[in-house]
Design a protein around this nucleic acid. Sequence first.
DNA 1: CGGCGTCACTGTAGCGCTTTAGCGATGCGC
DNA 2: GCGCATCGCTAAAGCGCTACAGTGACGCCG
Lengths: 354, 354
Amino acid sequence: MADAANPAEPPRKRKRVTIADIAERAGVTSGAVSLAVNGKPGVSDTTRARILDVARELRWRPSHAAQTLMGKNSEAVGLVLARPAEVIGEEIFFSKFIAGVQSTLSGRGYSLLLQMAEDAAAEAAIHQAWILDGRVDGILVLDPRIDDPRIAALAGMDHPTIVVGGQVDRDSIRSVHVDNGGAMGLIMDHLHGLGHDRIAYVTGDQAFRHISERMDAFSQFCVDHGVWGQSLAGNFDPAQAREATARLAGAPRPPTAIVFDSEVMAIAGMSTLASLGLRVPADVSVLSWEDSTTCQVLHPTVTALSRDAVSLGRTAAAEILQLIAGQPVEQEPVVARVIHRESTAAPHPEPSSA
Amino acid sequence: MADAANPAEPPRKRKRVTIADIAERAGVTSGAVSLAVNGKPGVSDTTRARILDVARELRWRPSHAAQTLMGKNSEAVGLVLARPAEVIGEEIFFSKFIAGVQSTLSGRGYSLLLQMAEDAAAEAAIHQAWILDGRVDGILVLDPRIDDPRIAALAGMDHPTIVVGGQVDRDSIRSVHVDNGGAMGLIMDHLHGLGHDRIAYVTGDQAFRHISERMDAFSQFCVDHGVWGQSLAGNFDPAQAREATARLAGAPRPPTAIVFDSEVMAIAGMSTLASLGLRVPADVSVLSWEDSTTCQVLHPTVTALSRDAVSLGRTAAAEILQLIAGQPVEQEPVVARVIHRESTAAPHPEPSSA
DNA sequence: CGGCGTCACTGTAGCGCTTTAGCGATGCGC
DNA sequence: GCGCATCGCTAAAGCGCTACAGTGACGCCG
């Protein structure tokens, strides 16, 4: 870089202010400074005040590296994303979730360490490295899958971990309690309450734990309430959602309501319905699992399950901080609710089968 | 993870493997190990091989803290977001940008250190702390404002910095070259080419550098091509975009095309137009500065400027890595293009003023 | 065969901080 | 007045690693 051999040597290298500098200035040893700045007993109040004054004056900041070398907390939480950049860029969920996590973390002076990985195995390797290095105090794991290698690896490490997006059956690992089944219940109550009894569900990737939880609840509701229900396996891809929607619409007795597992899928579905000449909600109601501004401004506006990814992130962050602090984790359940908008309404008596 | 070395002693506290452990096992000193693992001369090839074998066997990982304490690179890049969590969660740009940054960074083993801040001043303070601490090797600054305190602070620190979202006039700081003016030219060419000569521009927050660059180009084009152009100051808020749209639509001679500064604003505008009984593109064309899946699936689909935030992130990451490595930065310009979809078309001869 | 240059490695001094043993000076009880 | 705490501080070790001055062994030259 700009490494010109300097002749006069101006104060080039801004030397770091260390506790030794403070000690010298205050006429004590570095040990005393350490005690003073950390609020530990061992120095008199007057000396402490003097030391703190000097520290402030010198604009001293503790060296993060030295502190973590001593085994202190790193004041950072790690999150690895194991999905292609394109997907993360598309789904508003990540953006919201990260924003929520950040807003809580930053309030407490914590940072988020973020990395992307090829797959779950690579993600687990990064976790391992971070933990062994003391680079993060806690780890956030998103969207556990069935038989997730990350969970298995983390379970053995005895390190604060919060799983988001599905319950995990290890008791050494905590999960943010997201009641996927309950949320599906809300959705079905809403639709069933409007009079729908032919309901379809176009799902996201079923390898995800939270998706399978939702599907189970969907089936259960249908059985319990005598609703004709059909779920179509998807993978979050809008093209696939289009196809599934077209298939449903073309069926002999099409559903009167369709639930989509993401906002992107719901919008794709609605546009497909429109292009098939079907009106929402007159001919078919549509509900999106995930709210967004887009849902509010589309025409018609889209009824959505607001699980509020931002506050999900906040909750996850709050729980990991509690775990790190060694406090009991208060499992504050993430509230979800159905925001009723124009895209859902009572079904027509019978789509005039003539 | 087979850590069964000792029979009695339950492996309680998983002790960190240090170079001292390797040294002992390999019958050398820690100094030799350091030379060996860092590929420096000073050890024979056979000894080096033996040391590396032991290191691998013991699953040794260098201590990040110790290394940065020695002044080594931290292998992390910092990014502070100074906008409310809600905004970050709403705008797909952040998600895409971060995903893009990550995908490049991760490929080189770098992490992203992320924090949110209340305002630009707080952001600058975080930068300062990170840099002094050697916690990040480089800093990414998003959306410089006019007279940005972050830039001023960073300019004095002589630390790798890449600014994204507008040119900055300090020569000690590099910017990702995003040609906002050129992109606006593309947009205007598109609309003007279709025959529009009454064009409105609903802007984002004008305090941002990139927005003012766009506005300048807009005005310039209108002057140069005899287009009636009007820009309405906005702030990325959909409600505000609604209002601006209604105002434009209600004018005595409304524009035949409207450009919105973000996808969220464009969608809000379109829904407003629909509720006013105006058809897109028959009555008015709409163009969004920022593409997304939503633009592709809305009805009508939305013509958008695809500046591709993902690759913008990749470019920014690539440039900061070059800066860190001390290599000359190749300013690969970010390509933007207009994706022509249904929401823009030739204007009606004259909206039949009757 | 002494001098000298390599080579391969050792020993040790830090980096900035925390922690703990220790030490002189007070204060207190009996 | 002596033992014994307590206080307020110092001195030094050590976290894991790197850097650098040595050190002994060897080979080579004149």
